[in-house]
Design a protein around this nucleic acid. Structure first.
Length: 343
DNA sequence: TCTGGGGTCCTAGGACCC
DNA sequence: TCTGGGGTCCTAGGACCC
């Protein structure tokens, strides 16, 4: 029996690091990347450099708020192409160490090893640094959950190991929202049940959790709190389940025709994405976010799967029409379920 | 809240069927 | 009309992640 150990590789301040790599004069300075780079526009922080984080700036924060917390920060627009290129180089470097690699985002990957995991982790850091000039942190665990959690403790540029035996001491006293998959809402509901820490959740009555969260999620919450995770490394990229585009307007729109023109544009772009992947869709869902911030969605099901831009645009307009009201609109989105995916 | 854009998975409730 | 019970499918929305 070969017992594999899992490693989770997480690039440090990835997007900000890519920007600082091409503009070395920004090193050590507060750098905030997000939106179109205008801190007075609608948008949120994608990544803040460590220097910016010391001012309380973090991912997901509105750019306007980030600018207030750190007026001297350098604000930069998102440059997806640059991050995709850098990410591809990182993954390529990781594949020289482990053929079986699960890419979990631009800046994350899981790999398995039966060698000494700490030695492999150091090698990962050396290889990534040599290939890209970027730093990463590596978490080691008996499963993906433990490895992923451990990489958070490894930052910056470190290595940290969790196991079934150290999990309770390392995690038991922490608030439940430190667990992967528990955000503000679930933490709030758990608090109502008197469950505040990971240890509380690990020891909770599972029937109570199942009643409050549903059978599947309830059980999963408890397993997660106990550091248990049977999910496998997924080294083959999965075909996308859906493709979509959405757009937040810099100013709320009240003119129906203008909104419809935006929807047609989004639907046509989604159609291009589908065609590029040799995919088709038979369901088109239009999301509308009404001012100030109420989100709604309605879909239409097509008789046949298609990637035809005109058909998808027409379907999107129909899905918009059934929910249209004469009120200001902040965002519209078009998403297509993928029913076929060739190649 | 000043709250992006790309996704995934899960749940609740209604429709429908036997 | 005083209106069963269980299964499945579909849709909308919730919650979360990077």
């Amino acid at each position: 029996v070969v017992l594999l150990t899992l490693l989770h590789v997480d690039l440090d301040e990835f997007i900000a690091a890519v920007e600082m790599r091409r503009r070395p004069e920004l090193r050590g300075r507060p750098v905030v990347v997000g939106g179109n780079g205008d801190p007075s526009a609608r948008g949120v922080v994608a990544t803040a450099s460590y220097a910016a984080r010391r001012f309380g700036v973090g991912s997901g924060m509105p750019l306007r708020l980030a600018a207030r917390k750190c007026p001297d920060a350098i604000f930069l627009p998102m440059d997806r192409a640059a991050y995709e290129t850098a990410s591809a180089r990182v993954m390529e470097a990781l594949r020289t160490i482990a053929a079986e690699l699960e890419v979990a985002g631009w800046d994350e990957a899981f790999l398995a090893t039966n060698d000494d995991p700490r030695a492999v982790a150091r090698r990962v850091q050396d290889v990534v640094r040599a290939a890209t000039g970027l730093e990463c942190s590596v978490g080691i665990g008996d499963n993906k959950l433990q490895a992923k959690t451990a990489s958070g403790f490894a930052k910056p540029a470190g290595v940290f190991r969790l196991s079934g035996s150290t999990w309770p001491t390392e995690m038991g006293h922490r608030p439940v929202d430190h667990l992967w998959g528990i955000g503000r809402k679930r933490a709030g509901r758990l608090a109502e049940l008197g469950i505040a820490t990971v240890g509380d959740l690990a020891a909770a009555d599972v029937a109570l959790l199942e009643r409050a969260f549903g059978a599947s999620t309830g059980r999963w919450l408890q397993e997660t709190a106990r550091g248990e995770d049977r999910s496998l490394l997924r080294s083959h990229p999965r075909a996308p389940r859906s493709r979509g585009r959405e757009k937040t307007f810099q100013k709320d729109l009240s003119d129906r025709a203008v909104v419809e023109a935006e929807i047609v544009q989004l639907a046509r772009t989604v159609a291009e994405d589908l065609i590029e992947g040799a995919a088709k869709s038979a369901r088109v869902v239009v999301k509308v976010r009404w001012a100030p911030f109420f989100t709604q969605s309605r879909g239409v099901t097509l008789e046949r799967a298609t990637a035809d831009p005109d058909d998808l645009a027409r379907a999107a307009l129909a899905a918009f029409a059934v929910q249209y009201e004469s009120r200001p609109i902040r965002l519209v989105g078009v998403r297509c379920d993928v029913v076929e995916w060739n190649r």
